[in-house]
Design a protein around this nucleic acid. Sequence first.
DNA 1: ACATGTACCACACGATCTAGTAGTACATAT
DNA 2: ATATGTACTACTAGATCGTGTGGTACATGT
Lengths: 130, 130
Amino acid sequence: MEILIDTDSAEPIFGQLISQIKQLINSDAIQPGFQLPSIRQLATDLGINQNTVAKAYKLLERDAVIVSKGYRGTFIHPQAKQNCLVDHSQQARLLLSQTIGQLRELGLTDSEIRLQFAELLKDRTLVEPV
Amino acid sequence: MEILIDTDSAEPIFGQLISQIKQLINSDAIQPGFQLPSIRQLATDLGINQNTVAKAYKLLERDAVIVSKGYRGTFIHPQAKQNCLVDHSQQARLLLSQTIGQLRELGLTDSEIRLQFAELLKDRTLVEPV
DNA sequence: ACATGTACCACACGATCTAGTAGTACATAT
DNA sequence: ATATGTACTACTAGATCGTGTGGTACATGT
């Protein structure tokens, strides 16, 4: 499994990791069930921080591209290739654009919308019911 | 009509104007039909910029607290006292909190939500249908 | 000619916030 | 003891935003 990191790139490292891992899956270089290197292993190999790798893995797992099995390691998800194409941003775009449109119709200033949004986003109770 | 501006205050000048004008209305110091000083007049009286006064007036008119009658001047709105209490932020809060909750349930990161939001807010076509 | 509200633009200062990364520590299970 | 994923804090550079200002221009109606 070959991954190259460009520290000078504008794209963040964890983003490069995600892109390249997805590409390896799409090109069938690695297939479902394949065990990925551990977070520490990959981090030291690439000369980057563990948290950076952990972040990439976490996002990949959220999108069901890989699966973490705790101390046993991390593996390619059975439907990895299919899930690589899912775009969560699409749904977000739709929901948000509708909301913004409504708020603007109410006459709210963009500044006011921004302010409310920033405050609400700090509030974690919006998804976990306390 | 006495208005005092504290340049050293953390609250922006246009905010101080809005607050104090609302308070004058609530305390019956000025009543519906009362003619407010013109933008230029108030600006020079307080030693602040015209645009700052214009901004305050504009927001007050949006919330139906005052009414601009063009070259004839600006007046206190008939239902000013009542409209002083209307909080547009309330509706915004509700709409936004619902949307944010849904996006989080989808598993989206706050970073991702923020990004989408920032991009969409730049798009003015969301309310004006081109 | 004059005063009114309104609408732009551009700029600068300051404050705030965010992303990205790094370091460290922890619980688990072999 | 060792390896795994995970969670927390902290830091720094950079971007972003708001505010206020200044200037100019316009249409309106007296």
